[in-house]
Amino acid sequence: MHLRRIELVDVRSYDRAALHLDPGVTVLVGRNAQGKTNLLEAVLRAATGGSHRVASDAPLVRAGADLGVIRCEVVTDEGRRRTIELEVGTGRRTRTKVDGQDVRRAADAAGVLRVVLFAPEDVAIVRGDPAERRRFLDDLLSQRRPAFAAARGEYERVLRQRNQLLKQARGLTGSAREGAGATLEVWTEQLVTHGTQLLAARIAAVRALAGPVDAAYRDLADRPEPVGLTYRSSTGVVIDGHAEVDERVPDPGPLADAMRTALAEVAHEEVQRGLTLVGPHRDELELSIGPLPARGYSSHGEAWSLALSLKLATEAVLAEVGDRPVVLLDDVFAELDVVRRGKLADACAAFDQVLVTAAVEEDVPLEGVRVDVTIDGGVSQLSVRGAVA
Rank of each mutant, 00 (worst) to 15 (best):
P365G: 01
G35K: 04
K343W: 03
D10A: 14
L310G: 09
M1S: 13
E361M: 00
D66N: 11
V126G: 08
P130H: 08
R4N: 03
R105W: 04
D66V: 04
V29F: 02
A150W: 11
A267G: 05
L199S: 14
E302R: 04
H242W: 09
A267L: 10
A334W: 07
L140C: 04
F118P: 07
A58Q: 05
E121S: 14
Q272D: 11
G279H: 08
P293D: 12
L3D: 06
V61Y: 08
R92C: 07
L166Q: 00
L209D: 02
V338F: 10
E132W: 11
V245H: 12
E315Y: 04
L60V: 06
S299C: 08
E41G: 08
V98L: 12
A33D: 09
E185F: 05
R273V: 07
D251G: 11
V321D: 15
L137F: 03
L382Q: 09
R4M: 00
V11A: 11
A334E: 15
R202C: 04
V75T: 12
F118H: 14
G377P: 08
I70G: 03
A169P: 06
V103L: 10
H194A: 10
L19Y: 10
T37K: 03
E265Q: 13
R12A: 13
A258V: 09
A109T: 13
R232F: 01
T90S: 15
R341D: 02
S56P: 00
V213M: 08
L39F: 09
A201V: 02
A169M: 15
A216F: 01
A17I: 07
P293N: 10
G111C: 01
E284S: 01
K36V: 04
Q164P: 03
A347P: 00
D352A: 04
R62E: 05
A264H: 14
V112L: 02
E284L: 01
L166C: 08
L28W: 08
R12C: 09
V338D: 15
L40K: 13
H268F: 07
L3Y: 06
K167E: 13
L166V: 10
G377D: 09
A17L: 03
R295W: 02
A17N: 05
D246P: 02
V384H: 10
V354L: 00
Q164I: 02
D246H: 12
A55V: 13
H20G: 00
V116W: 05
G153K: 07
V238N: 03
E154C: 00
A262Y: 10
A63Q: 13
V158R: 13
T76C: 00
P325N: 06
L39H: 11
I6H: 04
S233C: 14
Q143P: 04
Q101R: 15
E286G: 02
V371W: 05
R53L: 15
V103T: 06
L21N: 04
R341Q: 11
T235Y: 12
P325H: 06
A106S: 14
K311E: 09
G128M: 05
D15L: 13
G322N: 08
S380W: 05
